Computed example of a mutant assay.
Amino acid sequence: MYATRQTCRAAAKALVLGAFTVALTAVPAVATTAGTAQAARAGVFSCREVSAQLPDVFARSCDTTHWGPVSDFVIRDSNSGVSYFCRSGWAEGALWINGQNCRQLPA
Rank of each mutant, 00 (worst) to 15 (best):
A42F: 03
S80M: 05
R87F: 05
L15Q: 15
L24V: 13
T4S: 01
T33F: 08
R103V: 08
E49H: 15
C102T: 02
R48D: 15
D77A: 08
E49S: 11
G35C: 04
Y84F: 14
G93D: 00
T25Q: 10
T25A: 08
G81V: 08
G18Y: 03
V50T: 09
V57Y: 02
V50G: 03
T32I: 13
S51V: 08
L105M: 12
S71G: 13
A107M: 05
L105C: 12
T32W: 04
T33L: 14
L95E: 12
V74F: 01
W96V: 01
A52P: 04
A37S: 05
C47V: 05
T7C: 01
G35F: 11
G89A: 09
C62W: 03
Q100N: 12
A29M: 10
P69M: 01
A23T: 10
T36P: 03
S51I: 11
L54V: 11
Q38A: 15
R76L: 10
A31S: 09
A37T: 02
V44K: 04
A14L: 12
Q53R: 12
R5S: 07
C8V: 08
S88W: 03
A34R: 10
V57P: 01
F58L: 14
A94Y: 06
G35K: 09
S83A: 15
M1H: 09
A23G: 06
S78N: 09
N98A: 14
R60K: 12
V74R: 01
T64P: 04
G35R: 15
D72I: 01
T32H: 15
T36Q: 15
C62D: 03
S78C: 00
A29C: 00
A12L: 12
V22I: 12
C102Q: 02
D77S: 11
V27L: 13
A52G: 12
R60E: 15
C62F: 10
L105F: 10
T65M: 00
I75M: 08
I97T: 06
L105Y: 10
A40Q: 14
A12W: 11
D77W: 10
A19V: 05
S71Q: 15
E49W: 13
F58I: 14
T36C: 00
T4N: 07
A40N: 13
T36R: 14
H66T: 15
T4Y: 02
L105S: 10
A23N: 13
C8Q: 06
L24D: 06
D56F: 14
D77E: 11
D72N: 08
R9N: 11
L17N: 13
S61L: 02
A11H: 05
F73E: 02
R87A: 14
L17P: 02
V74D: 00
C47L: 11
G89T: 06
S88M: 07
A94F: 13
F45Y: 12
P69H: 09
G81I: 04
D72S: 07
A31C: 00
P69V: 10
C86N: 05
T32V: 10
L17F: 05
L15N: 04
C8G: 00
V30S: 11
V16S: 04
G68A: 03
V70M: 05
T25G: 07
R5W: 07
R76N: 09
W67L: 08
D63Y: 09
